[in-house]
Design a protein around this nucleic acid. Structure first.
Lengths: 217, 217
DNA sequence: GGCCCAAATTGACGCCGTGTCATGTCTGGT
DNA sequence: ACCAGACATGACACGGCGTCAATTTGGGCC
């Protein structure tokens, strides 16, 4: 028992060629997958398609991922892990409800406009069907939002509302509006954030009375 | 050429056994699919699984649907076609913004609580991943909502807001809250509708200050 | 009833994606 | 130089996929 401790810990040197290759292969697969998902759409993509877009052998794929679902998850999780700190930071700075809400929406919409993965990937679904998948890290982001709301309530910044439903509402509005936002001719993250913020702060009647999706007066 | 016109028009008698069997087969497949989707989850289900839950042969399946996606679409579309008239009727009666919003949410949440298909089907996805698919008829329902909002604006009932974003917001809140609603120990459609309605009418600050998802004071 | 054609059903078939595993190759430690 | 273990490889067995020639069924017609 005591002697084993020496053999365990396979010394993961950061410069080790082994680790380098592993990391490189993982990235190769992920990048190939991004391309294939974007080209064929998630549904039509097969693990074989991903491997073919790679110099690797089919067996190698399964050393890194169990299925295309897991690859997709990894990609989405990467995105979620990139935006979550930004959202947290934006919300932490908020001293008022309005700042909290406004910063959340603006950060989210700006990120969505920069990241075109979702758009290209999900759209290619057959016909008019739309799809949305929330991976564990995305869902964890939802929970973070709920926690931040609860903290804000505890600090007295927020009224004492149902944090779960409020989180759900923010998430729902953020995702659905962003879907329309990216399709607009001149996508305006700030405008979308203003709309959502006003809605949450004061309701429908306070929304700007001029804007229209077509720009028609 | 001229004689053919007589033969065409295959006389689709409503009592014809042909039509009856076709309709019955279609229903058989749809019901089997509902069961299999609920049991295995959408992702894991194969067309073969659906056929096996049926006395039919594999080839027959393809006389009715092209793929499991199409079966799923048919099921969702059926649901969408069932709720859309209810939503339209509820909104048509509305004389004020509040009635419009309130009726939409209440009707939707009550329907969701009655219909357990989504819940059982989508959940079974591997791990924690969540999924949502919007079929054409569902999307058509979104458009109906947008039209109703535009009509209400034209009638002067609604302020002149961005109907597209407002529709998206209502849809997003409705779906995300309903997801939480069905998981609550004592699901309360009216309570959820009140929450959403208040949010849309007057914003966060007007939300009831007592409710909490856990019921903890 | 008997006849016929078209419509619908059947299930075996060829194709392809899946995940595995025995074999081979390379890395890093001694 | 040598070895052990980690990793890559691709052939393989399995099963789902969509098709299609053969068969059964339905109904119009006499």
């Amino acid at each position: 028992m005591e002697a084993e401790a020496v053999k365990i810990a396979p010394k993961p040197r950061l410069g080790g060629k082994r680790e380098q290759t592993k990391a490189a292969n993982r990235q190769t697969i992920l990048e190939a997958a991004r391309g294939v998902f974007a080209e064929l759409g998630y549904g039509a993509t097969t693990v074989r398609d991903i491997i073919r877009a790679t110099p690797l052998a089919s067996g190698t794929f399964y050393n890194y991922f169990q299925s295309k679902e897991e690859v997709y998850q990894a990609i989405r999780d990467e995105i979620a892990l990139a935006i979550r700190p930004q959202l947290r930071e934006a919300r932490e700075k908020a001293g008022t409800v309005e700042e909290f809400i406004s910063a959340t929406f603006r950060t989210f919409f700006e990120f969505v406009l920069r990241d075109d993965f979702d758009l290209r990937t999900i759209r290619h679904n057959a016909d008019a069907t739309r799809m949305r998948m929330d991976t564990p890290e995305v869902i964890a982001g939802f929970e973070e939002l709920r926690e931040d709301i609860e903290k804000a309530i505890a600090r007295g910044v927020f009224p004492q509302v149902d944090a779960d439903y409020l989180m759900a509402s923010i998430v729902g509005v953020a995702f659905e509006i962003s879907e329309r936002l990216v399709r607009r001719e001149k996508p305006d993250a700030q405008g979308a954030a203003d709309f959502a913020t006003t809605l949450f702060m004061s309701g429908i009647r306070a929304l700007p009375h001029t804007a229209n999706s077509n720009g028609t007066a």
